[in-house]
């Protein structure tokens, strides 16, 4: 998929662990891992809202579009 989720950078900036973020967002660590490893097929706006609130950032700070090479 061309959409890349860059959670690690923001987690490091805010000095938060994956577990702490998962608890703040209200999702399981397994689901957060799915998001971090690029296996997620879709993200709900409510989840994105909760992540941005927890990390105090913009969606563009954690979502990146990388053109796929044909």
């Amino acid at each position: 998929m061309a959409i890349v989720v860059n959670l690690d950078v923001m987690l490091a900036k805010r000095k938060l662990s994956s577990g702490e973020l998962a608890a703040k967002v209200g999702i399981t660590q397994a689901n957060l891992s799915i998001l971090k490893t690029g296996k997620a097929k879709a993200v709900r706006f409510s989840t994105l809202d909760a992540i941005c609130k927890a990390l105090d950032c913009q969606p563009g700070d954690i979502l990146e579009y990388q053109k796929e090479e044909l």
Binding site: L32, A40, K41, A42, V43, T47
Partner: peptide, 8 residues
């Protein structure tokens, strides 16, 4: 179902 399971 798979798509829903991978919707976070």
């Amino acid at each position: 179902k798979e798509e829903n399971e991978l919707t976070i």
